[in-house]
Nucleic acid binder design. Sequence first.
DNA 1: AGACGGTGTTCCGATTGATGGGACGAGGCG
DNA 2: CGCCTCGTCCCATCAATCGGAACACCGTCT
Lengths: 269, 269
Amino acid sequence: MATRPSAGSTGTSQSLERGLAILSSFHSDRPLIGVSELSRGLDLSRSTAHRYVATLAKLGYLQQDPESKRYRLGPKVLDLGFAALNSMDLLEISAPHLRRLCDETQRTVNLAILDGTDVVYIERYRTSQQGQREIDLNLHVGARLPAYCTAMGKAILAFVPEERLAEIIEQIDFVPRGPNTLTDAAAFRAELEKIRQSGISVNDEELAYGLRSIAAPIHSHSGEVLAALNLAVHRTVVSMDELIARFAPAVIKTAHEISVSMGHRPQPS
Amino acid sequence: MATRPSAGSTGTSQSLERGLAILSSFHSDRPLIGVSELSRGLDLSRSTAHRYVATLAKLGYLQQDPESKRYRLGPKVLDLGFAALNSMDLLEISAPHLRRLCDETQRTVNLAILDGTDVVYIERYRTSQQGQREIDLNLHVGARLPAYCTAMGKAILAFVPEERLAEIIEQIDFVPRGPNTLTDAAAFRAELEKIRQSGISVNDEELAYGLRSIAAPIHSHSGEVLAALNLAVHRTVVSMDELIARFAPAVIKTAHEISVSMGHRPQPS
DNA sequence: AGACGGTGTTCCGATTGATGGGACGAGGCG
DNA sequence: CGCCTCGTCCCATCAATCGGAACACCGTCT
């Protein structure tokens, strides 16, 4: 009985799935991988792994290092990420607002969306002057962080419909990451309630020591939450109270402006 | 002989190829595509197209718009591009040098690599002050431009081994794009020779009206050319001669420093 | 030197997973 | 209301995928 080894794979393509698994095997810290290594990691035969790799290489998604004979990601994969970014008109619309916020406050500002339990950075404006030399983790566009310990993640989740929110919270693994990380669902829900009332989300070293930020949600024309923007500083630069006092109004105002540009009606009559 | 209708498809996976073709169908200007539309565009049956789309959606590379039922790229594809960028230690190494060049000159500087006949932008530091409001085409990281009409492309090609260079030039389609575009291979090869001697590559409105830039190549430890960096300005800001006089030394110096950091020995022996 | 273990690559017959026609329900439009 | 197109699902047929085996190559160890 149960002759079907994997029942969940109805209506999907095994080959495509495996090929993409190969692509995702390449990380920043693992840039060069050989065929055998891949076949072992994904439990495929060397021939099969090689066929996929050859296909990916032929299309430009992988390229072979002439010396080591192993493979690395090719420039073609950039095209995909690039296309994804530009597909979002959210980006175009918010760009000028973010830039202005960055100019006026002289702080780093970010834009992120929610994907599962993560936030994904979509845009980033940093000030070149500040002393804080990129010490903030490596937060490029495309970077992922767990939503529960970021100001932007909380800002978004605070306005996600209860039904979906329950599913998401179910999947969150509340791991302490900074001095003040919220580590249980109850405290987290209370925090979301606070955000819903105040309209501003704060992160006081919940993600990492020294890292503070405030964030506000961005809504679509239909009212659902789309994204969030934040403004980040280091603890040595400003206290939490000062951070809120000085920057919260501008952050909220910018988020509102972007929402309105997206077609959002602030007060549905 | 050659009974195979498609001889080039030996040892590659059809499914993977088709699945990736679906992913690449999504562009900035075509963000939402339906299953039927895809099946028509790629000459597949609706069922087959749907299976691929379902697979891609399941893995997070596509996501379905609830209203239109059509599909768009998912945040997951960002991970790929992100991984590709971070795999290049070239990026880490050159980042501080580029930033410094940007700070000192107060101009936009870029870093690009060669992929086929295109250059692909890998990093970009822009100054927020300048009046030139991003008028330059949409040159994000990940953007592609034809190598033959860019300063960076020419800077790289000038140092590509003759054998490969011949292949590449063969594939170039010399289309006029700006007032001074080089439109034949002979003139192009002469230009490359000039770059080899002077060490600096200039683009005087060859790509688009008003766009000027100068670029210099970056070499690896083994001496081969890896990338190029440039500094771009608008024609209204500075003349060509002034551009070279004021910025060429800094550009060349920065490119050299990065090359050295990569392990390049400027003068072998 | 020689044998070895490792790699990437190629070939080919067996079979498994992909294929596409057809059917269903849901929308949209005239 | 009928008509068209859409996304989705099912299933028997078949072709594309699979993986073992063999090859050439490269260092390392004996």
